[in-house]
Design a protein around this nucleic acid. Structure first.
Lengths: 202, 202
DNA sequence: CCGCGCCGCTGACAAATGTCATGGTGGGCC
DNA sequence: GGCCCACCATGACATTTGTCAGCGGCGCGG
């Protein structure tokens, strides 16, 4: 009863290294490893893994989006998000995407191994400290448009450019930015972007 | 004639995974693995590795700074920077810090293995594409103060706050910001920060 | 020694940004 | 239907910001 694993991480070295690490455990078998989010589902269909380990930052398709598609289309395969940042918002969105586990890359290897076995057994696995932080952070107070504006602002666009790209008037954009600044407690739109980003609200 | 290796990466999982991966090669032996930059030198003194693989993003001491100290104090140990970002500025600074090699985590495992063996043999190893990009990017056009200002601005501080933290007048800060915006070709200080950061000028 | 560039400052001006009040629309909910 | 809220907009206003010209000082290389 070996556990069949799928690995998805855009960094080849990390991917191969994790493969080597997990293969050391004799109840694990890595049946597929991909480097792009949009290759996850096809690989899962072909190799029928029991558990998929998905990084969040990936080209092609976001790890969170990949998780959502995967749980919908290949329900036998359970998903663990394995990512660099323990951002509060990521955990929330991972759960919404149907992930069964969430492990940060800071964790030691045996935590990951334990998580894989427990997820395989039907449990949901999340670092308790991270769960607390997420609940404390709460959901995003931003409206959809405020989010859009901040996301565009993140690239360094001026108010005028944001208005152009979003087909809004400049005044409206300024209002949204102002609202976002108030809600984040920032004093700039640049700080507002930073705060919202850190909280996983973007 | 096995090659003795030291690993430094702040993410436990990546560190252990790389250890597993490299241990598969029978001419490699991982003799130490640390998670903080300020533990590198002590570990190198104790375990006398032939080659040290250092991540750049690390708590305690920057990987680049650790490389500089290491090459100065333990000259028998050669250094390979092993990092996520192939930023032009990183490569430049790595070379200045005395690193003998530079490998991005995007690279496949055999590239890393080859780099280790070649560095051990006395060669210097750099991804040619990255080297070209670095030469093309050229050195930073920013003066020291312009850099300071941008670094402070990165946190989301207002002009007034930057002035306060750097003990400068607001007008002076505005002048530096303006100069930095001109030199980066940006239209905001926020975009200037982003561009300078990407180029490794901060 | 003289020029040059970086440093730090000032003052003035234009442009961008943030804040506020206000108003209309439409969807969801009691 | 009435209420609330998100959404989009306008206009006016204060503040912040970016730009420009110009000043003196300092260190370094020709």
């Amino acid at each position: 009863m070996t556990i069949r694993l799928l690995l998805a991480d855009d960094q080849a070295l990390v991917r191969e290294a994790l493969c080597a690490l997990l293969s050391l455990e004799d109840d694990f078998e890595v049946v597929a490893a991909v480097g792009r989010g949009d290759e996850v589902v096809a690989a899962a269909r072909e190799h029928r893994p029991d558990v998929a380990l998905l990084d969040i930052e990936m080209p092609g398709l976001d790890g969170l989006a990949a998780a959502a598609v995967l749980t919908a289309q290949v329900p036998d395969c359970r998903v663990i998000m394995l990512t660099t940042f323990g951002r509060a918002g990521y955990l929330r969105r991972a759960m919404e995407a149907g992930a069964a586990g969430f492990v940060v890359k800071d964790a030691p290897a045996d935590v990951l191994a334990g998580a894989i076995r427990r997820v395989r057994a039907g449990e949901r696995v999340v670092d308790p400290a991270l769960a607390v932080a997420t609940l404390a952070a709460g959901g995003s107070p931003l409206t959809a448009r405020e989010r859009d504006v901040l996301i565009t602002a993140r690239t360094g666009a001026t108010i005028a450019e944001i208005a152009g790209r979003l087909y809004l008037s400049e005044g409206t954009v300024r209002n949204y930015v102002s609202a976002a600044i108030t809600k984040t407690g920032a004093r700039n739109r640049i700080e507002a972007v930073r705060i919202a980003d850190e909280r996983g609200w973007l």
